[in-house]
Nucleic acid binder design. Sequence first.
RNA 1: GGUCCCAUCGUCUAGCGGUUAGGACGCUGGCCUCUCACGCCAGAAACACGGGUUCGAGUCCCGUUGGGAUCACCA
Length: 477
Amino acid sequence: MPHIRTRFAPSPTGYLHIGGARTALFNYLYARHCGGKFVLRIEDTDRKRSTPEAIDAILWSMEWLQLEWDEGPFYQTERMDLYRERIQALLNAGDAYPCVCTPETLDAKRQAALAEKRKPMYDGTCRPPERAAVPLPEGVPYTIRFRSPESGATVVDDKVKGRVEFHNTELDDLILARSDGSPTYNFCVVCDDIDMGITHIIRGDDHLSNTPRQMQLYRALGSEPPVFAHVPLILGEDKKRLSKRHGATSVTAYRDMGYYPDALNNYLVRLGWSHGDQEIFDAREMVEKFDIDAVGKSSAVFNPEKLLWLNAHYLKERPMSRLAEDTLPYLAAKGYPIPEDRSWLEKIVETLRERAKSLVELVDMAHYFLADTVEIDEKAGRKHLVPETRNLLQEVSVRLRNLADFNEDGIEQVFGDIVAERDIKLGKVAQPVRVALTGSTVSPGIYEVIDVLGRGATLARLAASIRYIDTHSSAAK
RNA sequence: GGUCCCAUCGUCUAGCGGUUAGGACGCUGGCCUCUCACGCCAGAAACACGGGUUCGAGUCCCGUUGGGAUCACCA
C-alpha cells in the first residue's frame, strides 16, 4: 500500500471525549499498521466556539493516550488563504455562486417546509440557470454556495458501511463561505484533506450523510475522493449518543479517576472492533492487529464496568516501582504527604494492588497506612473492639513488642502461637487486630498490614484500641 | 417527517449456509481463606418478528418492528 495517510480533525469546542478518542485511536492505529502517517488538524473555523483551553485539553489528551501524530497540529484558522483560493477557483468555474438570500428568509422557508412536513432544502433562488461564472453582488451581504448536481446519484463506497447511495436530489447547494467571508466546515475539510494528501478518512458515522457532498466537492476541486470508513457511534446506556449527561466522558476525567491510558485505549479499541476472542491488547499488538475490515457496523453502548475491569488488569500488570510512582499525583491530589521512603510506598502499594481497580481507589484504600491515626468504623468497633477481645489485643501487643525479627514471618509466628495456645480460630484474633490497625473489618492480610505499619505504629494503634474498648465499654454502662 | 445507517446473552463481541451458537464484562453459586480482594471452578443469560431462497438458515433476499444518525451562514 502506497503511503497511507490518516488524520484526526477535532474541533476545539470542548474536551476530547471518549468518542473522539476512539476515532483518533482508529486513525492512529490504521496509519501505524500500514506504515503510513497520522496527521492532526484542529478545526477551529468556528471562532465563537473554539477555545485555547479546549485545544490544550485535546493535545494533552492525545499525548496522554500516546496517540503520536506525525504531522501537525495544523490549524484551519491559519489556512484561510487556501480556502479563499479554492473558492475563487470554484467561482471561476461556475461550480459556486453567490447567494443573497438572508438568514431570515432562509429560516422562514425552512420553518414553512417543516410545517408542511417537507424536507427543508435550499430552493435554489440564487442559483444561476447555467454553470457559468457570475458577477459578485455589490453592496449586499452574500454567501457562496456550491452548485451541486441536480440529478443522478452519489455513491459512497464505505469501508465499513459498504456501498451507500445518495440521490443528488436530496442534496441542496451547501454554503461554502458565510456572508462574512469565512469558509464553512464541509468545505474546509475537503480542501485540507486534499491538500494534506489524506488517503483514508476514518470518522464517526454521524458524518456519513455529509460524505456525498464532500465527494462532489472533491471532484469539483479536481481530486478523487479518498477512502471513507464511517465507524458507528458510541452510545450511552440509554442508547443515545454518548454525551456529558452520561457521566464521565472526557479523557481527562478518566485520568483524574485513576485510569491508565493503556486501559482506555484497550477498552476503546474493542468497541466496534474485534480480533477473534481476544480482549487484551497492548499498544504493540493493537498496531499489529488493527484493521478496518474487522470494524463492526453497529453502534456500541459504553460500558464503564468493563473499562474498570481492564484498568484493574493493567494495574496488576504494572511493574511495582512504576505503580508506586503512578500513585504520586493521586496522593498529592488527596493531600497526603509524599512518602520519602519510596520502598515503603512500594510495600503499601503491593498490599493494595490486587484490591484496587483504579489508582484513586488504591490511594483511598491506603488511608490507614498514610494517616497518623485511624478512625475506627463504628460498626466494626462495636463488633470487634469489645471487652472480650481486650486481653487478646494486649497479648498481641506484648508479643509484637518482644518480637526479635519484626517481619512477616515473625508476625505470623506470633499469631500462630496465640492461636495454638488458646485453641482458637485465627479469625478470632485477626479481626480485632485488623479493626484496631485499620479501623475496618476489610484490609489486606493482617501480617502484611502489621509489617507495613511497622512496630511503632502497630503498638500505638493497639494501645489506642484498648483505650477505645475501655472508654466505649464504660460509656455503655 | 424526508434521507441514510444498524439489529447474536443486560453490555462488548465471535460466527462469514450444516456449531451442544463460542469468548469477555457484569451477575449467581462454590473452592481458596485471618476479612476483603485476587485466583480457580461451575451456572443462569442471546440469534427482534414475519415471509421467502435452500436438502438445510444467526448467516442470503424482502417486509415489519425497534434503535440510531442527519437534515444550520455548527463542526
